[in-house]
């Protein structure tokens, strides 16, 4: 036998008996951040491809989700801080080695850019909208003139935001489940599929819906590939990573991961997307909601399971 016990009675809150320093606000934020990154990515991409009129929902309407999601996400992040009064210390420095530091700056840029993007398209929802003050009008004129550079900024920062939500976790080598570089692209894919699903849900144009159904299908396939790839990596790695993979291969997170994330969140919506493309009519609501729920469940499962995984010594 090999038994390891702390005999001096360590009961540090949120650390013992099992690390639980990050609660529900963190996965919630990771989901909202990924969703915002997804919708902004497609908005900027199809604007830059000159398809603004053709894919109106993607470029002009759905991006309105982004600022709401980002503000709610930031509120969740703030809520989870233990030393709230000092949050501004984040913006007194940039630390390249800390994903959380450059993530905070990225969030500042993408949130501001998403508000500007929505302000430029506010007439989509309020056709008679008029800015009350002249300086606001001047800002609108300025950004309308420079919409292309703005779209480039959004495109690039959307990708960074999507990847960062994964890198944030993969930077911790103390938690073997998180410590895989697949997590960056996997979280990006999950965010993009949530974005594509939102566009399918919101669009009234059949052509646009079909395009984003196709995109969604490709991303879901990529996600599945990355998940398989991740497990292959874990099982071929060190003992701690093999043990981390066991959390999902017979351990306590097996059911929730394979049922809610993989089957309900990826495979079933993928099959429904495929049926839609083959000409069978599937209500857009079903695959769309399933993808969003899968993306949501994925963050929760990963943040919680990762905190359980550890080095044993």
């Amino acid at each position: 036998m090999n038994e390891e016990l702390i005999i001096s009675g360590r009961e540090n809150l949120m650390v013992d008996p099992q690390l639980h320093i990050w609660h529900w606000p963190i996965p919630l934020y990771l989901f909202l951040g990924g969703l915002a990154a997804g919708v902004l990515f497609f908005a900027a991409l199809y604007y830059l491809l000159g398809k603004e009129e053709q894919y109106r929902a993607a470029v002009r309407r759905v991006p309105f989700i982004a600022p709401v999601a980002l503000v709610l996400g930031l509120a969740a992040l703030f809520y989870d801080l233990n030393h709230k009064a000092f949050f501004w210390q984040l913006y007194t420095t940039i630390r390249i080695q800390s994903p959380m530091s450059w993530g905070a700056w990225t969030l500042l840029v993408i949130t501001t850019a998403s508000f500007i993007w929505c302000a430029l398209h506010i007439r989509e929802f309020f056709p008679r909208w008029d800015w009350k003050y002249k300086w606001l009008k001047d800002i609108e004129v300025f950004f309308n003139k420079n919409k292309k550079p703005l779209a480039w900024v959004i495109l690039i920062f959307a990708i960074i935001t999507g990847v960062y939500t994964g890198i944030l976790l993969s930077a911790f080598n103390a938690r073997p489940l998180w410590n895989t570089s697949v997590l960056g692209p996997l979280f990006l894919a999950s965010g993009l599929s949530a974005g594509a699903a939102s566009i399918v849900l919101a669009s009234k144009n059949r052509e646009e819906r079909l395009l984003f159904t196709k995109i969604d299908l490709i991303i879901l396939g990529t996600e599945l590939f990355l998940i398989v790839h991740m497990f292959m990596g874990f099982l071929a790695s060190t003992q701690v990573q093999q043990e981390a993979a066991q959390l999902f291969l017979g351990g306590p997170y097996t059911m929730v991961f394979w049922i809610f994330v993989v089957v309900l969140g990826i495979i079933i919506p993928g099959v429904l997307d495929l049926m839609e493309l083959w000409g069978k009519h599937i209500p857009a609501l079903i695959p769309g909601v399933l993808v969003l729920m899968g993306s949501f469940a994925f963050r929760f499962v990963f943040v919680f399971a990762g905190q359980v995984s550890r080095w044993l010594y």
Partner: peptide
């Protein structure tokens, strides 16, 4: 303490679980 925002990143990053959140908020 007065630079710490209590985000918990360091606590998650420690393979020895040597840190804890002080009731006053900082680590």
């Amino acid at each position: 303490p007065n630079k710490c925002i209590g985000c918990g990143a360091c606590i998650a990053s420690c393979p020895y679980d040597a840190r804890y959140p002080h009731p006053k908020g900082y680590v």
